[in-house]
Design a protein around this nucleic acid. Structure first.
Length: 906
RNA sequence: GCAGCCUUAGCUCAGUGGUAGAGCAUUACCUUGACACGGUAGGGGCCACAGGUUCGAACCCUGUAGGCUGCACCA
């Protein structure tokens, strides 16, 4: 038996084992396997990203599920990969290009090969390195080089965490096969008539110069100002209408003012005109229900080009649309030279000054409102009219998509954990808006639509030389919504689709989760012949059976983790300090279902300590002889402590099985923590020392066998959470020569023993809770009248024998003189106990203890008697409850009497 | 405005009708023979507040307050 190190050192073990696992190719999922399938697709991280605590949480959970499924005998596919993350990656690369000298060598090399932007003689760029100067083709080359350079990082980091992905199947959303699937999906939707190109109001990001979808707009409260200005009524010289606005800089684009037709203040003005000050124009006063007459003055300036609601009013009243902003958010209005070319926020100040000068500004008051921000550009979005591609969700699946998508979740064909996210999902689907699919971004899947002389064709390949492809690319989510099946080839899909679980954060429930469900229903990847409205169809084409929503990881103060706050710990540093198992276990222990987590390094430290505790329990075991991998406690005479831990282990297995069914990961972790720390180490191990050190003990073999049996199961139970530690111990202790990863999941044992042994152990543990005190104290706790026999190597006086007898409240205590043991042993009909005599020495201490006990017993008794004497209470409580109280009262009474008699004998 | 979640020890959180729990922190003691990444003993709580249901509420119901999140509005 090898001597284990005094403390568990994770790093070398992790390195060694992970390499061995990869060598054995054990994570490769075979479609030909006859084992039942279990599959998960990873939520693909950004290809250029690095591991965050969020990834650690998310991927630990997936790894736990996959490892558990392997122990359950499944053929497991955990499919890894990365997302090209269109705009995000393009923005990152463009930013990096501003400092060409700091570029990674491979990217720099590509840059230097671009003759149109790189001056080789001077070794510097000829032009500013932005996407317009570089051009589509060259920028894509640079981004490809960038992704090749950075793309492997996060994958390597996931391996450090111990993730058991099928790395041979790593996918990237820009892989040729995946690209083809994305294009096919678009073309398919186009030909079904679900996709259209339209000139509509979109959310425009003036920093990234692209449209973004509603889901990517983040509304943020801003301290702004509400300006009230006045326009003169043309038909009534000298009469002014007061108008409230937060955006005076757009007034050049006003083509009407609107009032509510039911507003008595303004009814007589409807149909008349007001004079817009600059550029001067007469614009009509229209009546529109949209106007809230509580807000401001009840008069709304209508700027159809720069506000969604105003655009709709404009449509209703046939108003002209005057665009006064450039795509990058500057004023475009040569008629007003003071403002022309100014940034929109500078123009706001300037236009207020101009209104003031014309005496048209009535007042200016502070006003908090919510402003939509672009997630990527970190600037307020600008509603803007532009030509984009849209998907009309409502037409999908022959018009029944929304209904079916709701049904799938409502009828739990797809189950959400925790369930409450169903409401959020339902609400989104019920109020769904068309999806703006196109992006003015180079990096991504280009829209597969071609134009020639006013003709339009949607197909994957160019129809011919004169045809020109649409310039735009698709929203990155219009590629990742196919991730659950487009990552699989035909045989793989047959075996592993639908996937079993999706583990992700609720922040992308609309962006990704709901859309994956929709894609599954629409594209029928299972090639189901069933009617799309049928349950069979839903079951065959659900992207996943269960969705587990993790919480967000926050810092200790409850703030989101972010780079700018610098409150995001580096998971790799934590792994090297505390071990992958430490971070995994520590995090899982405090990550209840769907609750946000306040993260603190202490938790990881606890995880590490736990690993070390188990390590040392095993180390202790190895000091007492060879492990028997087939140990069967039922073949041996068992101490009460052995019987107790066997019984407890069964309860633990039952609890963990239920936990896995309900995705209660922190419950499972706590259960294992308590079992290992308290039951195994603090109690069983301490009591087992007696047997281990005493060759004469009749229960020694049973105690050893039980230890081996328990460890054997515990290692397997823990393996999903702490794969490295458990594998190392499994192999080192010699439970098997084979990896632990495919061993069967432990089941509840079928041992039968009378409850007396475990009960005796429980009594002892309850009174004398933890380890070392047991030596002297558990005797006191023995309150049962039993006939004991004592073997002891030490000389023992009759007085001592009688004190001992009274302490343990023995019916009788007989000293067995023949063949004295090497250590004292106490034999009882309930089990044999190791008996160090140290405990007898300090009787004074025991006396204090007894007094405490008596106090507690007295309170117990009082409480139970109070319950029993409450007639109303007894009349209404269930009969068995009342019986229980009486029993408890009786026991408390007995205990009290016992303790008192013990005290008097001390 | 609508919806969801949260409020329990100094901190981070479990608990879900029947005696208030864990880890960390803290106090005292212990180099001890698996483990100082350890052990023993302690201190620390009107379970946010107010009503209600119940023999009994941290737990169920209603309301209030505070915090967080999402959606809508956002002139």
């Amino acid at each position: 038996m090898p001597e284990l190190a005094k403390a568990y050192e994770p790093s070398p073990v992790e390195e060694k084992l992970y390499a061995a696992w990869l060598d054995s190719n054990c994570y490769h999922a075979s479609p030909e396997s006859t084992k039942p399938a279990y599959s998960i697709v990873i939520p693909p991280p950004n290809v250029t990203g690095v591991l965050t605590m969020g990834h650690v949480l998310n991927n630990t959970i997936q790894d736990i599920l996959c490892r558990k499924a392997r122990l359950d005998g499944h053929e497991v596919l955990w499919l890894p990969g990365t997302d090209h993350a269109g705009l995000a990656t393009q923005t990152a690369v463009e930013k990096a290009l501003r400092k060409p000298d700091e570029l990674p060598p491979r990217v720099r090399e590509v840059l230097e090969s671009l003759d149109h932007v790189w001056d080789r003689t001077q070794n510097k760029p000829k032009l500013a390195l932005n996407r317009h100067n570089i051009g589509r083709e060259a920028l894509l080359k640079l981004i490809w080089a960038w992704t090749k350079d950075r793309g492997g990082i996060i994958i390597q980091q996931l391996k450090k965490l111990g993730c058991s992905c099928d790395w041979e199947r790593e996918r990237f959303t820009m892989d040729p096969a995946y690209h083809q699937a994305v294009q096919e999906a678009f073309v398919n939707l186009y030909h079904k008539g679900y996709i259209y190109r339209g000139n509509r109001m979109v959310n425009w990001c003036p920093a990234s110069l692209t449209a973004i979808s509603d889901e990517e707009v983040i509304s943020t409260p801003q301290k702004g100002k509400l300006f009230t200005m006045r326009y003169e009524v043309q038909e009534r010289p000298g009469v002014f209408l007061e108008i409230a606005t937060t955006r005076p800089e757009t007034l050049m684009g006003d083509t009407a003012v609107a009032v509510n037709p039911r507003d008595p203040r303004y009814q007589s003005y409807i149909g008349q005109h007001v004079l817009r000050p600059f550029p001067p124009a007469s614009i009509p006063i229209v009546a529109d229900e949209h106007v809230d007459f509580e807000f401001g003055t009840g008069v709304l300036k209508v700027t159809p080009a720069h506000d969604k609601a105003d655009f709709e009013i404009g449509q209703r009243h046939n108003l002209p649309i005057i665009d006064v902003l450039t795509p990058d958010g500057k004023i475009n209005c040569p008629a007003v030279p003071e403002l022309h070319g100014l940034d929109r926020f500078e123009a706001r100040k300037k236009s207020v000054e101009m209104l003031q000068a014309l005496e048209l500004l009535v007042k200016e008051e502070p006003y908090d409102n919510n402003v939509g921000f672009s997630e990527r550009g970190q600037v307020p979005i600008e509603p803007r009219l532009s030509e984009q591609w849209f998907l009309d969700y409502r037409k999908m699946l022959g018009g029944t998509m929304i209904e079916e998508a709701l049904k799938a979740v409502r009828e739990q064909v797809i189950r959400f954990y925790p369930e409450r996210w169903e409401k959020v999902y339902n609400h989104w689907l019920e109020n769904i808006q068309d999806w703006c699919l196109s992006r003015q971004v180079f990096w991504g899947h280009r829209i597969p639509v071609w134009y020639r002389n006013g003709q339009t064709k949607a197909q994957r390949e160019s129809p011919g030389a004169e045809w020109i492809q649409d310039e735009d690319s698709m929203d990155t989510w219009a590629s990742s919504w196919l991730w659950a099946y487009a990552t699989m080839d035909e045989p793989t899909r047959k075996k592993f689709y639908p996937t079993n679980a999706l583990v992700t954060g609720p922040d992308i429930i609309f962006l990704w989760v709901a859309r994956m469900i929709i894609a599954g229903l629409e594209f029928n990847p299972a090639q189901s012949a069933a009617d799309p409205g049928s349950r069979n169809y839903l079951e065959a084409n659900r992207a996943f059976k269960d969705v587990y929503f993790t919480g967000l990881i926050r810092d200790k103060q409850g703030r989101k983790m972010s780079k700018s706050l610098g409150n995001s710990p580096d998971p790799l540093a934590l792994i090297s300090k505390f071990g992958a198992d430490g971070i995994r276990f520590g995090l899982m222990r405090i990550a209840p279902q769907g609750q946000d987590i306040r993260f603190d390094e202490k938790q990881v430290e606890e995880g590490r300590n736990f690993c070390n505790k188990l390590w040392n329990a095993c180390r202790f075991r190895t000091m007492h002889g060879e492990i028997d991998p087939l140990a069967d406690p039922s073949q041996h005479k068992l101490s009460p402590f052995a019987e107790h831990i066997l019984q407890t282990l069964d309860a633990v297995i039952t609890k963990i099985d239920a936990g896995f069914k309900n995705y209660e990961f922190s419950l499972i972790a706590s259960t294992l923590y308590e079992f290992v720390w308290d039951d195994l180490c603090a109690r069983y191990l301490e009591t087992a020392k007696a047997d281990f050190q005493n060759p004469d003990s009749p229960t020694r073999a049973g105690t050893l066998a039980t230890f081996d049996y328990v460890l054997n199961k515990v290692l397997r139970l823990l393996h999903p959470y702490t794969p490295f530690l458990t594998e190392e111990l499994w192999l080192e202790l010699g439970f098997s020569k084979e990896t632990i990863q495919f061993q069967p999941w432990p089941t509840v044992s079928h041992f039968t023993f009378s409850n007396a042994g475990p009960q005796l152990a429980r009594d002892l543990y309850a009174t004398v809770d933890t380890s070392r005190r047991l030596r002297g104290e558990f005797l006191i706790a023995l309150n049962k009248k039993v006939a004991f026999k004592l073997k002891t190597p030490h000389p023992i006086t009759n007085d001592e024998l009688s004190v001992l007898s009274s302490l343990i409240n023995a019916e009788s205590l007989e000293l067995v003189s023949e063949a004295p043991a090497k250590t004292p042993m106490l034999f009882s009909p309930l089990g044999d106990l190791y008996l160090p005599l140290d405990g007898l020495i300090d009787l004074a201490q025991e006396k204090i203890r007894l007094e405490k006990e008596i106090l507690k017993a007295q309170t117990d008794l009082d409480r139970e008697q109070k319950k029993i004497s409450n007639e109303k209470m007894c009349a209404n409580a269930p009969a068995e409850k009342v019986l229980e109280w009486k029993q408890l009262a009786q026991e408390a009474q007995e205990k009290l009497t016992n303790l008192q008699s013990q005290l008097s004998q001390l």
